[in-house]
Design a binder for these strands. Structure first.
Lengths: 340, 340
DNA sequence: TTTCAACACGAAAACGTTTGCGTCCCAGTA
DNA sequence: TACTGGGACGCAAACGTTTTCGTGTTGAAA
């Protein structure tokens, strides 16, 4: 077990000073041609690689970006990570992943862990509990300490920072409009409680689409799910009574639960009821019938977020202090859960 | 934008030396009671947190574990990460995630990036290309430099290190046995090429189960998929000609493709053909019919891997130099794609 | 022969910690 | 009074870099 080679060891081995080795390896012309070659040859031979930790300490940057998300066993988040990783990798950054488990405390803890030098900046989607408590002091603190922050998906107006979101309202509108276009009259909405911003926004899109098409809003056709655990039951009950011919669900699980419930009621999808879900998961493609969805383009969001963050990191810090919000468009992907 | 508080600043502010501050904060009894209190109060007031990078440099350990996997948009791997993250978090470690994209070169690059001080040890599942080339020099190098390595799922005999695997052979046997038990006579196997170890092992289990039950092996009923891209076509063709009454697929995708193909052939699942897949993905639970699967217990594997790694990290390095292989049992989860 | 620039290299500080050891001062003892 | 011991603190090295600023040597010009 040989320990890692350091500048000091090279210096001793070649009987020069540490600074000479460092300069030679960085091709400084302060060092004579012959010693430079000798040192570089030696370094290559023994596969010298500078120690990242020492570099981080010296440069006060870690070339690492921290990403904190509520959960990872979730297709959307993994696609986002994938996007982040891709551009991070291209630009020489590493990705530190932390999970908040939707818990406010864990989110704060994770941020504190990473903020003490482990990370140059953050990419985050907020925990449900955080949005509920509306306590964002940990975010403020990071920003105050000069750590760039990019929020995605679960964002919040109170914090001014870069953001990457999907046009939830428009996406939902597209979906509902599509349902209307194929002739649906009684369109149900399966959403989440309003403090989850996406739930609120997608509900808004649903309402706007109805309004623009002159369809009266029937609050009775809207189901708001609080506990994910009981969602299947709630959805069954909801589907059973409403005589719907269209369903718009704010996520994939709800959409699939809806389809199951519909089928259990002896109706067919899409012949009797058309169903559209928000989120473009693996499930949607492979389910039978495959789901018509509003695609979130997670990978794209991840790429945008990472690009913004790295750009901010590599700018001279003091420069422009204004924030962008990138809206990635949501696209309707028609498959087999809607009539054509 | 106030920069982070350091020992030096506290020292200046309180007009003591840096070492006094450090010792006071670490409750050394070298420091007088009153100054100690004063310093601790000040530190708490201004929320001092030691800089991780400096600590890493000094202690030569980063409290970070690197995990390198082929891809992240894959349910099994996310559950593993989830497990790793859980125990890492409990024990004060961070998790650095890198994706190899199944490319040998990216895997090597990632390892080199992380090996230079970013990480104390590795948890890896090997890239397909790596297993193909059988080039493990990067793994050897990490081990030689004293960085513990835990391999999971896609492991390899040539490397001696800790491993976490599933009993693929037994798992596959369980599945095929179950198919035999419910009366299947012509059981097809949809596998991968043999250099993917799991493909080989699960194939072995398939063969053993048949043999133990006195069923003659018909190589014609075995399909080996090379390119994931064309898998659907290949599976369709395979299913069409064989008159199977049972199918065992080595992963979820193949299983679902098989079900689709079966249904397109006018047959019913599970009435006419029973299907079992390896891997316990989200898809399996929610697909219609929901899939009978051999569960891999990814989270459990992640936990085991992380525990082994951390234990090795925190032992005095020189201690026992023997390696464990943990085998987590694969459980059959019967759902609706098999007759009962 | 003296002077001076150019060249090639080394010393040292800095990043933020921890820690072994030295030093100062004061009280207690002989 | 002189010596000793210990309490309370500071110095400095170390982790592995990079970089600024010396410094010594050489060769050529005056």
């Amino acid at each position: 077990m040989k320990p890692k080679l350091t500048l000091k060891q090279i210096a001793k081995e070649l009987d020069v000073s540490i600074s000479t080795v460092s300069k030679a390896l960085r091709d400084s012309n302060e060092i004579g041609e012959d010693t430079r070659q000798k040192i570089k040859a030696f370094a290559k031979l023994y596969n010298y690689k500078p120690n990242n930790i020492a570099l981080s300490l010296k440069n006060r940057k870690t070339k690492t970006i921290g990403i904190i998300i509520p959960e990872i066993v979730h297709h959307f988040f993994t696609t986002v990570i994938s996007g982040v990783e891709k551009v991070a990798n291209e630009r020489g950054y590493n990705v530190l992943v932390c999970l908040s488990d939707n818990s406010f405390d864990k989110e704060v803890l994770n941020m504190e862990m990473l903020a003490n030098g482990s990370t140059d900046g953050f990419i985050m989607s907020l925990a449900k509990e955080t949005m509920q408590k509306q306590d964002y002091h940990h975010l403020m603190e990071a920003i105050n300490h000069g750590m760039p922050l990019v929020l995605f998906d679960r964002v919040v107006d109170e914090i001014s920072c870069d953001k990457v979101i999907i046009d939830d309202v428009i996406g939902a509108k597209k979906a509902v409009q599509h349902l209307l276009d194929i002739g649906c009259k009684r369109i149900g909405l399966i959403s989440t409680v309003d403090y989850v911003s996406v739930g609120k926004l997608r509900t808004k899109g649903y309402k706007e689409a109805l309004q623009e098409n002159g369809v009266a809003l029937d609050e009775d056709l809207i189901l708001k799910i609080e506990e994910i655990e009981n969602s299947e039951r709630e959805i069954e009950d909801f589907i059973a009574g409403k005589k719907l011919d269209g369903v718009f669900a704010v996520n994939e699980h709800f959409a699939i639960s809806a389809i199951k419930a519909i089928q259990e009621n002896g109706l067919r999808v899409p012949e009797d009821v058309s169903v559209i879900g928000f989120t473009d998961g693996e499930l949607s493609k492979r389910f039978i019938p495959s789901l018509t969805t509003v695609s979130q383009h997670g990978e794209r969001m991840g790429e945008e977020a990472a690009t913004m963050l790295i750009e901010k990191l590599e700018r001279s810090a003091t420069e422009d202090e204004h924030y962008k919000t990138i809206i990635v468009e949501a696209g309707l992907v028609t498959r087999n859960s809607t009539k054509s």
